[in-house]
Design a binder for these strands. Structure first.
Length: 426
RNA sequence: GGCGCAUUCGUCUAGGGGCCUAGGACGCCGCCCUCUCACGGCGGUAACACGGGUUCGAAUCCCGUAUGCGCCUCCA
C-alpha cells in the first residue's frame, strides 16, 4: 500500500512554526517513501475561520518547498458524507441523538490502545472516553468525527500530527472501528516550545513562517533547522540539503520529548547556508529579498556589495544596517571622531590621488600612509571607517571605499574632519 | 482534579546493559588570525530530575516521586 499522509491545519491564522514542522515531517516521510502528501483544511468551525489564512498557509508551505499532491481539500466540502455516516451509525445503534446533536457511544469497559510510531504503545482506559459529539445540532461534523472519516476516505496510511492529539486518538480509533474503516498508523510528534518552556506562541518573537522570511532566513536553512528540532540522523551530521533530508528521514528517529526553539542556532545555520551560496546566487537572492522588503537601493550597487557582506551577515535582513552607507548619507558620532581630524585629512589627500581607485590600490596607499604617520593599522583605519561608513562595524574598509566611489568618500572624509565636527576643535 | 505523554550540558541532540571518567552542534568564555564585524583555527565551561529496585554491571530495564507539557469544548 503506497504511503499517503496529509497535513491538516485549521484556517484559524497564519502557519505557526510548530505546525510547519509537523507539515515538514509529513512531507519528508511521504517523499522519502515515494508516497503522497495531501493538504486538507479542517474548517468545520467556521466561526474561528480567519480570512486569508488558507492563502497564507499555502504561501508558507510553497516558500519552504513543501509541495502537496492534488488539490487542496476542505473538510466542509464533505458535509453530506459526514452526515450520512453519522446517520448510519445511529441506525446501527452505535450513536444516538442528544438534544439535536449526535453522539457516539463509546465503550465503557476495557482499553483502547495503539502502537504509536514515535511514542510506542499507548493505552487508554475506555471508561475515560466520553460519548463525543459527531454532529453538532446544526448538522456540521466535529473535528473528532470529520478528521478520521476524511482520513479513511483519503486512504491515509500514516497520521503524523502534533502530540496534542494523543488523547483524541482512542476516540477516533473507536469511531473508525465502528465505521468498519481500516486504522492508519499514528505518529505523534512532540510540540515545539518557546524559550520560556511554554508552547510556542506569539509571545516568542518570530513564529510565523512569513516572519522568518521577512527577517532574511533562507527556506532551505529553516527547513534544515526545523528537521533537526526533534529529529536527528546520527550523533554529528547537522547539514542536510533538501534532497539529502528526504533520502535519510525516518520517523523512528523522531524524539518523543518536546523541543525548545532556539533562534540563535537557526541564525547560525542560516549563516552557514548563506555563506555556502555561489556568489551569483547570493547576489540574486539578496536583491530579491531586499526588493520584497521594500529596500530601495539600486540593483547594481546591491549586487556589487553582495560579496562584501556574504561572509559577514547571518540573515539577509542585516544588510541594510551593515551596508546601508552605500545607499544613503551617514552621520558618524562626533564623540567617536574626536581627535581624528588630522588622520582623516591625510586620508582624504591620499585617496584623492589613488589611481586606479581599486580596493587593492586603496589598501596599499592607506597602509603606507599609516606607516608614515606611525599609526597602527587599526588606529588609522578605524576613524576612516567611521567617517566613511558612519559605523565602527562595516564590510572590508578598502572594498567599501572602492564601492562608495572617490567623490563620495572624499566628501565624507571632509565632512568628518572639517571645522565644526569636533566639538573642541579650537 | 482525571487521563496521557515526557524528563541527558542553558538549548538541539547522540546514546537502546559493559565501547560513557557520557560524544557532536548552537550559545557562552579564553587564545590565535585580523582594518572593525564576521568567518576560520585552537582550547575551555557545562548534563544522565530524584528515590528505590533488577543485574556481576544502568544514562540505558522496572516501580514510585517530582516537575513540565497536552487533552478533558456541539475548538481543531
Amino acid at each position: 500500500m503506497p504511503v499517503r499522509v496529509r497535513f491538516a491545519p485549521s484556517p484559524t491564522g497564519f502557519l505557526h512554526i510548530g505546525g510547519v514542522r509537523t507539515a515538514l515531517f509529513n512531507w519528508l516521510f511521504a517523499r522519502n517513501a515515494d508516497g503522497e502528501f495531501l493538504l486538507r483544511i479542517e474548517n468545520t468551525d467556521r466561526g474561528r475561520e480567519v480570512e486569508q489564512s488558507v492563502e497564507q498557509i499555502q504561501r508558507s508551505l510553497s516558500w519552504l518547498g513543501l509541495d502537496w499532491d492534488g488539490e487542496v481539500a476542505f473538510q466542509l466540502d464533505r458535509l453530506e458524507r459526514h452526515q450520512e455516516a453519522a446517520r448510519a451509525l445511529v441506525g446501527e445503534g452505535k450513536a444516538y441523538e442528544d438534544e439535536g446533536a449526535i453522539r457516539f457511544r463509546m465503550p465503557d469497559e476495557g482499553t483502547t490502545s495503539w502502537d504509536d510510531v514515535i511514542k510506542g504503545r499507548i493505552e487508554f482506559p475506555n471508561e475515560k472516553l466520553e460519548d463525543v459529539v459527531l454532529l453538532r445540532s446544526d448538522g456540521r461534523p466535529t473535528y473528532n468525527f470529520a478528521s478520521p472519516l476524511d482520513d479513511a476516505e483519503d486512504a491515509i496510511t500514516h497520521v503524523i500530527r502534533g502530540d496534542d492529539h494523543v488523547s483524541n486518538t482512542p476516540k477516533q480509533i473507536r469511531i473508525l472501528e465502528a465505521l468498519g474503516a481500516p486504522l492508519p498508523a499514528y505518529a505523534h510528534v512532540p510540540i515545539v516550545l518557546g524559550t520560556d518552556g511554554r508552547r510556542l506562541s506569539k509571545r516568542h518573537g518570530a513564529v510565523s513562517v512569513e516572519e522568518f522570511r521577512a527577517e532574511g532566513y533562507l527556506p532551505e536553512a529553516l527547513m534544515n533547522y526545523l528537521a533537526l528540532l526533534g529529529w536527528s540522523y546520527d550523533d554529528r551530521t547537522e547539514l542536510f540539503p533538501r534532497d539529502e533530508l528526504v533520502r535519510v528521514f525516518t520517523l523512528d528517529r523522531v524524539g518523543a520529548a518536546p523541543a525548545t526553539f532556539d533562534y540563535s542556532k537557526l541564525e547560525h545555520l542560516n549563516g552557514v547556508y548563506l555563506r555556502a551560496l555561489p556568489p551569483e546566487d547570493y547576489a540574486h537572492r539578496l536583491f530579491a529579498y531586499l526588493r520584497e522588503t521594500g529596500f530601495e537601493g539600486d540593483e547594481e550597487t546591491v549586487r556589487a556589495a553582495a560579496p562584501l557582506v556574504q561572509e559577514k551577515i547571518a540573515r539577509l535582513g542585516e544588510f541594510p544596517s551593515f551596508a546601508g552607507f552605500l545607499f544613503e548619507p551617514v552621520a558618524p558620532d562626533p564623540v567617536l571622531l574626536d581627535g581624528s581630524a588630522p588622520v582623516l585629512a591625510e586620508a582624504r589627500e591620499t585617496l584623492a590621488g589613488v589611481d586606479p581607485f581599486t580596493a587593492e590600490q586603496i589598501e596599499a596607499e592607506l597602509r603606507s600612509l599609516a606607516e608614515r604617520l606611525e599609526l597602527k593599522p587599526r588606529q588609522a583605519f578605524q576613524p576612516i571607517r567611521l567617517a566613511v561608513t558612519g559605523s565602527t562595524i562595516s564590510p572590508g574598509l578598502f572594498e567599501s571605499i572602492e564601492l562608495l566611489g572617490r567623490d563620495e568618500t572624499l566628501a565624507r572624509l571632509s565632512a568628518a574632519s572639517g571645522p565644526g565636527s569636533p566639538p573642541d576643535a579650537s
